[in-house]
């Protein structure tokens, strides 16, 4: 998105009022206990349970392919545009390029986001590109570039993995040749508690060490994207402080989590194809 310098971004020095509310005075331990109690989470999910997922394709009429995903309250729109020649490039590239842009809507988080991409969004764009680069058959469109835009309407955690899953669906909808369906999942880890598909509060609490029963220990967040039928990990990103055993366990959990998502997406794509065929036959 071109930067609009004429737009007034509001005063720089504003802070969300929520910082001054009573909620904020609770200790981290209290906040964590509120989120996870007796193997149950605040929304009654089990620790390793996905939130409800809703997927719809073809929302954006201008784009070649598009997908909308709701993962709990997290809402992301991804649109894929027709291949075009790679801009500002003189030499011929044998493989096509993928261009990803990940953006949070200004109103999507508790703190207002700016219109310009910040470093977090740039990082997420790079991770999305990393995930999709090895998914798309890039040799099928040499010297061309496919643009993928992910726009987060509401961030309630796991926004990146929702965007990557949706991007896979949008690419399939656009008819871009792919090796496999790509799905992605996020895992939050706080000591021995692992939370699949964390909400924004859970994710925030997993990004820092929270003392539980007087101890601090390993914590972190992992985002993993997989090509399921090839058993390939196309993108892996971890932050925090985790030991090798934690990560090996997490990879297994995330693999199963990704497996669970596949039938949902397959079913949706089949539905979409049947609908298109029906529409075509009606047109005749």
């Amino acid at each position: 998105m071109p930067v609009d310098h004429k737009r007034i971004n509001g005063p720089e020095e504003t802070v969300p009022y929520s910082l001054f509310t009573k909620l904020n005075t609770k200790s981290l331990q209290q906040q964590f206990k509120e989120q996870v109690r007796d193997e149950k989470r605040s929304d009654n999910r089990l620790l390793l349970e996905h939130r409800k997922i809703f997927i719809k394709t073809g929302l954006v009429s201008q784009a070649k392919g598009s997908a909308y995903i709701e993962q709990g309250k997290t809402k992301v729109i991804v649109s894929v545009f027709d291949p075009r020649e790679i801009p500002n490039r003189t030499d011929y590239s044998l493989k096509g390029e993928i261009y990803c842009e990940f953006k949070f809507a200004t109103f999507s988080c508790t703190k207002r986001r700016l219109h310009q991409q910040d470093t977090e969004e740039k990082q997420y764009s790079a991770l999305m590109k990393q995930a999709l680069d090895s998914t798309v058959c890039r040799h099928e469109f040499p010297n061309f570039q496919v643009d993928i835009y992910a726009f987060v309407l509401h961030n309630d955690g796991s926004a990146l993995s929702a965007a990557i899953t949706a991007a896979g669906v949008a690419l399939a909808h656009a008819g871009v040749p792919m090796y496999d369906l790509i799905v992605s999942a996020t895992l939050g880890i706080q000591q021995n508690i692992k939370l699949l598909d964390p909400s924004v509060t859970e994710q925030w609490l997993c990004e820092m060490p929270v003392p539980l029963d007087g101890k601090v220990g390993n914590q972190g967040v992992i985002v993993m994207s997989m090509l399921q039928s090839h058993e390939q990990i196309s993108q892996f990103y971890q932050v925090g402080n985790l030991s090798l055993e934690d990560i090996t366990d997490s990879i297994k959990i995330l693999e199963n989590a990704c497996k669970e998502l596949i039938p949902l997406i397959q079913k949706h794509l089949v539905k979409h194809v049947l609908k298109t065929m029906k529409n075509k036959s009606e047109d005749k």
Binding site: H230, S243, I247
Partner: peptide
């Protein structure tokens, strides 16, 4: 003895 960040780079994918 802990990982603080793991990141995959390059264009390929890896087996678990």
């Amino acid at each position: 003895d802990k990982f603080s960040t793991i990141l995959q780079t390059g264009t390929g994918s890896l087996h678990m």
